[in-house]
Lab assay of single mutants.
Amino acid sequence: AEIMKKTDFDKVASEYTKIGTISTTGEMSPLDAREDLIKKADEKGADVVVLTSGQTENKIHGTADIYKKK
């Protein structure tokens, strides 16, 4: 799966169907969080990951919607 910015995804959204939401939390780098989200998306058969939230304090927390091409 590839990560797309919401603004970029909005241009092609009609080509995809939302298949779920994924999240990651833990003591990790932003890059590790990104890789974890991609891994989870791949496991669910998603083609595209669109980040919906991200937070960093002591731990990273990120959520994303996942989509499959129609």
Rank of each mutant, 00 (worst) to 15 (best):
55 Q>G: 12
31 L>E: 15
26 G>V: 13
51 L>F: 08
48 V>M: 04
56 T>F: 13
3 I>F: 10
61 H>S: 11
35 E>W: 13
26 G>E: 12
2 E>L: 14
6 K>A: 10
21 T>H: 06
26 G>A: 10
15 E>I: 06
63 T>R: 08
20 G>L: 00
66 I>L: 10
38 I>Q: 06
16 Y>S: 02
65 D>V: 05
20 G>W: 01
5 K>M: 14
14 S>A: 11
66 I>M: 07
35 E>V: 11
47 D>P: 00
58 N>E: 13
28 M>S: 07
40 K>P: 00
32 D>K: 09
25 T>I: 10
67 Y>R: 03
37 L>I: 05
50 V>G: 03
21 T>W: 06
7 T>G: 10
20 G>K: 00
56 T>L: 11
59 K>M: 14
18 K>C: 10
41 A>S: 03
18 K>Q: 07
48 V>H: 00
24 T>N: 05
50 V>R: 00
63 T>P: 07
63 T>L: 08
47 D>C: 10
52 T>K: 10
49 V>I: 15
49 V>M: 08
4 M>Q: 00
59 K>Y: 15
11 K>R: 11
1 A>N: 01
63 T>H: 11
24 T>P: 04
64 A>F: 13
7 T>Q: 11
64 A>T: 01
55 Q>M: 12
56 T>K: 08
29 S>C: 10
20 G>M: 03
62 G>N: 12
45 G>Y: 05
22 I>C: 03
15 E>T: 05
39 K>D: 03
55 Q>A: 11
29 S>H: 08
43 E>H: 07
63 T>M: 10
52 T>W: 10
69 K>D: 04
8 D>L: 05
62 G>H: 15
35 E>L: 13
11 K>T: 04
18 K>Y: 15
6 K>R: 11
43 E>F: 06
30 P>Q: 09
34 R>Q: 10
27 E>V: 13
47 D>A: 05
30 P>W: 15
11 K>F: 05
9 F>H: 01
30 P>K: 08
67 Y>S: 04
69 K>P: 04
30 P>R: 09
12 V>N: 03
67 Y>V: 04
35 E>D: 07
54 G>A: 13
12 V>T: 03
58 N>D: 14
19 I>N: 01
9 F>Q: 00
9 F>M: 02
46 A>G: 04
26 G>L: 13
41 A>W: 00
61 H>I: 15
49 V>P: 00
63 T>A: 08
18 K>I: 06
6 K>T: 06
53 S>I: 15
19 I>T: 02
24 T>Y: 12
30 P>S: 14
31 L>I: 12
67 Y>F: 07
69 K>F: 05
26 G>F: 09
45 G>N: 07
69 K>Y: 05
3 I>D: 00
34 R>E: 10
8 D>C: 09
64 A>C: 05
44 K>L: 15
23 S>Q: 12
2 E>Y: 11
27 E>R: 12
13 A>F: 06
61 H>Q: 08
28 M>Q: 08
63 T>C: 09
38 I>N: 03
23 S>G: 05
30 P>F: 13
28 M>F: 07
20 G>H: 02
70 K>P: 02
2 E>D: 06
4 M>D: 01
30 P>C: 15
55 Q>D: 15
20 G>D: 04
21 T>R: 06
42 D>I: 15
21 T>M: 07
67 Y>D: 03
13 A>W: 06
27 E>Q: 11
65 D>R: 01
23 S>P: 04
48 V>Y: 02
37 L>D: 00
8 D>A: 06
10 D>T: 06
60 I>N: 10
61 H>L: 14
5 K>T: 15
42 D>S: 15
8 D>S: 03
19 I>Q: 02
27 E>P: 13
27 E>L: 14
63 T>I: 08
35 E>S: 09
1 A>Y: 00
55 Q>H: 10
68 K>Y: 05
17 T>Y: 15
36 D>F: 11
10 D>E: 13
2 E>S: 11
9 F>E: 01
12 V>Y: 05
33 A>P: 05
26 G>R: 10
22 I>R: 00
24 T>V: 12
8 D>Q: 05
43 E>S: 08
52 T>M: 10
32 D>A: 12
2 E>H: 14
68 K>A: 06
29 S>V: 05
13 A>D: 03
67 Y>E: 04
7 T>R: 08
63 T>G: 04
7 T>S: 14
53 S>N: 11
42 D>Y: 12
47 D>M: 04
17 T>F: 14
25 T>W: 10
51 L>M: 13
1 A>W: 01
15 E>F: 10
20 G>T: 02
48 V>P: 01
31 L>K: 14
55 Q>E: 14
17 T>C: 15
29 S>E: 08
50 V>E: 02
62 G>L: 15
28 M>K: 08
44 K>V: 11
59 K>E: 15
7 T>A: 15
27 E>K: 13
70 K>A: 08
60 I>W: 14
21 T>C: 11
57 E>T: 12
56 T>E: 12
25 T>V: 10
28 M>V: 07
3 I>K: 01
19 I>S: 02
